[in-house]
């Protein structure tokens, strides 16, 4: 920091304060001992964290989101590995179009996806089903997984695979023992990014989720539109802490900036 001027340091401090202010506000409010929104002026209280336990809705929604994200991210990765390898390493007619098609959800506002799925599912009788929710999330997050697989597979030389073939390995063994381990970092990063994107998704899910398949963001959104109380703050605080832990893990293994360059 010593090589930065005073103006730069003041700017940086204000910027960081701006970024942290709303999060700190949420955390502060969640520790209030009052029955209404207020800062914990009389010491910290855990009553609103206990209150979460009395509201199984939030806990159910949390597990719903976890399962949804787990399944959707896994399917997205399973689609992305073969597709990513084909696109990155083969030249074939229609390659650019196929790549653009599989990445196209990035260009579509989540709201548009949401209304499209709402109508589609209600017309084929899948409205509000968990299956429908999973399928919608797979469409939404596959581009993220595909992009990370693509970037891992693009620079990959075929030399190691050819070497394995000449050493007598079968094509499947080559994939299992050589190719897959080489793209594994991209695959794992893609899975994580897909998981987080799915877990946090609100706009599309609001249209697709029914009361029985409410995800946590959807549940929280509906709660906030009804009332903003310390309970929602304590739920949010739990979420902030969990996200922070995931973030530390991600940063340790990948470097956050690398993950986000994939997201942007």
């Amino acid at each position: 920091m010593h090589n930065l001027g005073l103006v730069a340091r003041i700017f940086h401090a204000l910027f960081v304060a701006f970024i942290l202010a709303p999060l700190l506000m949420v955390i502060a409010v969640s520790f209030t001992d009052k029955g209404y929104l207020s800062l914990p002026t009389n010491g910290l209280s855990l009553r609103w964290f206990h209150a979460i336990l009395d509201n199984p809705d939030f806990i159910d929604a949390f597990w719903m989101s976890v399962w949804l994200a787990l399944i959707a991210a896994s399917i997205a990765v399973l689609i992305s590995i073969p597709a990513g390898l084909a696109i990155a390493r083969h030249k074939f007619a229609g390659r650019d179009i196929i790549a653009a098609f599989l990445l196209s959800p990035l260009m579509i506002p989540h709201l548009v996806l949401g209304v499209a799925f709402l109508q589609f599912y209600s017309s084929i009788g899948l409205g509000g089903s968990f299956f429908g929710l999973v399928a919608a999330h797979v469409v939404l997050i596959t581009p993220y997984a595909l992009r990370l697989v693509l970037s891992a597979a693009t620079g990959l030389s075929t030399d190691a695979e050819n070497a394995a073939l000449t050493l007598g390995a079968s094509k499947f063994t080559v994939f299992r023992r050589v190719t897959f381990p080489l793209i594994l970092p991209g695959v794992a990063g893609g899975w994580l990014l897909s998981f987080i994107t799915s877990f946090d998704e609100l706009t599309m899910s609001v249209f697709v989720a029914s009361p029985s398949t409410q995800t946590l963001p959807v549940k929280m959104y509906h709660h906030i539109t009804q009332t903003i109380d310390p309970l929602i703050a304590s739920v949010s605080t739990v979420l902030i802490v969990l996200t922070f832990l995931v973030m530390l893990i991600l940063d340790r293994f990948y470097g956050l900036d690398k993950i986000f360059i994939g997201k942007g």
Partner: peptide, 25 residues
């Protein structure tokens, strides 16, 4: 600081917006 600045991207938009609602309310 990269963690501080980029980390919020991982936190649900609902949570971050709630923070502003609390500040603005």
């Amino acid at each position: 600081f990269l963690l501080v600045v980029l980390g919020p991207l991982l936190i649900s938009v609902v949570v971050r917006t709630l923070g502003w609602a609390l500040l603005f309310g």
